[in-house]
Design a protein around this nucleic acid. Structure first.
Lengths: 172, 172
DNA sequence: CGGATTCTTGAGGCTCCTCAACGCCAGTGG
DNA sequence: CCACTGGCGTTGAGGAGCCTCAAGAATCCG
């Protein structure tokens, strides 16, 4: 299923670090400490590994190797996320997220691409560094421009992928 | 010395991913691709490793292990950076950065802590997702509040570490 | 010194946040 | 069946914070 990885501050502020989709490796520890919360947004199937097996490279070199590759891939994804958080406007952030999800889990329906958003608007907001109101406004704006359609409340159809991609890159 | 790791977009927008200080491991590849620029802000001494040695865990398990630990630590640091980019105001971002640098490279001078900022205001801005003007304004505001002092233009003295930490956490 | 670059400061505007109200839906209990 | 409730999403009005644009200091370098 889909996982939500988040981190909280004392003030109650929350940042969603990432959404975990099937095939992702999650739960990287730092100094033996886990600093993130993880919640399943839908029924999920997890495979767990024992830390000793992972940290001691000698027992299973292949597994160790896979873990390293997963960590490197995670770093690269996080760098993309940085661009989004630091440099993009609200509508660009929304467009970027929709594009990324379409590539990741989109399914062709007729001539269009459709996917579900199992996370709430609030989750999206905390992921993108926005508020739920802004997320909602940007989505309705995209609807009005006929770039996307929202069939069910948590299901999005991409009508104009090129326009969406252009928006995501800041060329809208 | 100090390194600056950044990533560019086609539009000319830039995001500083991290500043590399002595002891840091930098240059994690993803899928064999390097997607970040790296520039030395001061004379720097680098140790390079051959990729084959790193990727093939069998030749040197200890080195491989160290690399994994470095990657995990990097992920943790990046998660902190997410909190900053997504959830904090401009002055909170500046305070957070100054706190982090003080912990990392601050040197006690008399009863205060001092350190140098080898990066330009523009670099700081692109690191925090702000503009140079906003960075400058926040710094002068901190000066006027007697929380910091700017002796030379790239040298900061922390006068009130507690106040700075409170600001960084959003309790200012 | 002169020129270039960086930093600072100011005025004004735009984006996004805050606060608030309303609609929709599901669950609950009478 | 309906009223009530709470959670979530949408929409609006207003304002704060940050950006844009611009000009003036400060610093660096030839």
């Amino acid at each position: 299923g889909v996982l939500r990885l988040s981190r909280m501050q004392e003030n109650g502020r929350r940042q969603i670090i990432a959404f975990g989709y099937p095939g992702d490796v999650v739960g990287f520890p730092a100094n033996g400490e886990h600093t993130t919360d993880c919640k399943a947004l839908s029924d999920a199937f997890l495979i767990s590994y024992r830390r000793e097996d992972l940290e001691c490279g000698t027992t299973d070199p292949d597994l160790h190797q896979e873990l390293l590759q997963a960590a490197l891939s995670e770093i690269s994804d996080m760098q993309d996320h940085f661009m989004m958080l630091g440099q993009k406007s609200a509508s660009e952030k929304i467009a970027s997220l929709l594009c990324a999800l379409a590539d990741r889990v989109g399914e062709p329906i007729g001539q269009y691409v459709e996917f579900s958003l199992p996370m709430s608007r609030c989750d999206i907001a905390d992921f993108l560094g926005l508020t739920t109101e802004t997320v909602s406004r940007c989505l309705t704006q995209l609807r009005k421009c006929k770039i996307i359609a929202v069939s069910k409340i948590h299901t999005v159809v991409i009508l104009e992928p090129d326009a969406l991609a252009a928006l995501a890159e800041g060329n809208g």
